[in-house]
Design a protein around this nucleic acid. Structure first.
Lengths: 192, 192
DNA sequence: ATCTTTGTAGAGTGATTAGTCAATCTGTAA
DNA sequence: TTACAGATTGACTAATCACTCTACAAAGAT
């Protein structure tokens, strides 16, 4: 099946790029090395992605989608709003810890000039669910009544911060889980 | 006075670099443009900074120092620990809002491969005060007893998050100040 | 006045890199 | 079998960029 091999090459290119970007940054990584690492010729990269920029943005969307899928798949429809939040928070953290490179990349991406190149529809698609959830939580008076973007930003930056801490601090798995739980309690105390 | 004109050139180079970095990122900004923007020749840049990397790290240290100075200068020695924290938080936020480019640069820098090139002594010098303050607050039981780095990371990322929100949301000065105060109350609720 | 150090300029260099292109290969369908 | 479209290759190019080099100027120092 040809379409399979096409997807394989795309995937190979994205994961090669991810590995190298996480290590050397966008600009420390020439397209030639990405192609080599993916096991394809230089020109092939540009067959699938028109420009390097295109590759970077595509990679961002790919990673975000995979994370959303994971969280979605692991979120049981609990009854209470708080339990929903806690579970989602936990899943995001676990995913991030398992996917170091992905997390590093996203961080880099967010504070780069590429960030503004993500199509508005993709942003909507990727953050829509979380927005709705926050809106619902506000309606149910489970969390403070504030601008949704305000809440979301605090939530997101909290996640990033904790991740940064966990990357540096040398903790075993059990300790990590305790810190994650602890940090959620703190976060919730702040928002409710 | 020659030493004055030397410092001027250094300053010119740093502020030119800052302006361009904030707009185009480190790698989107050639040294030639930095020199031009600063009104000096290409070679002059390399007289003051051995490499581009050297310039970037120096700029980071310069910005951080200036922020620390500002916060230091505007922090009255209040009695209560909480008031101290609030005031410091407020000052950091006000500084960040007044210095858009600086804030953008620091964000970019933190999630770049350059971050690891800051000498340990500088890191200590720049974050020492805050560390001590947190330790004192924990001793006084004003905030939760946790790892200092844990607290500091949550504090920092909260600051970054709020800044990001305020950059995007179009609020007037009064509204901004209210959000800052509100966010401090939330942060404090979380940490105490 | 002469020597030394430091600052400044800007053309030049060698290496690197994103992206192109013409040529070949592969799978499919008539 | 033939024809065609898309996939793949890798040599090539045009541009860019960090950094060097040489020449000269300005300012102290002796």
């Amino acid at each position: 099946m040809i379409s399979q091999s096409v997807n394989d090459k795309r995937k190979d290119l994205l994961s090669a790029a991810l590995r190298l970007f996480a290590e050397n940054g966008f600009h420390g990584t020439p397209t030639s090395k990405i192609a080599k690492e993916a096991g394809v010729a230089n020109g092939t990269l540009f067959h699938y992605y028109k420009t390097k920029e295109d590759l970077i943005v595509s990679l961002y969307i790919d990673i975000k989608s995979r994370m959303s899928e994971y969280v979605e798949a692991h979120s049981e429809k609990e009854k209470s709003v708080k339990k929903n939040f806690r579970n989602q928070y936990l899943q995001v953290m676990l995913w991030s810890l398992k996917h170091r490179d992905e997390f590093l990349f996203i961080q880099q991406f967010h504070s780069s000039p590429f960030a503004s190149l993500v199509p508005a529809e993709e942003i909507e698609r990727l953050s829509g669910k979380t927005c709705e959830q926050i809106e619902k939580a506000i309606k149910d008076k489970a969390i403070k009544k504030r601008d949704v973007n305000y809440i979301m930003t605090l939530f997101t930056s909290h996640t990033f911060g904790l991740n940064q801490y966990l990357s540096k601090a040398q903790l075993n798995e059990k300790e990590q889980k305790e810190v994650i739980k602890d940090s959620f309690d703190m976060l919730w105390k702040m928002l409710s």
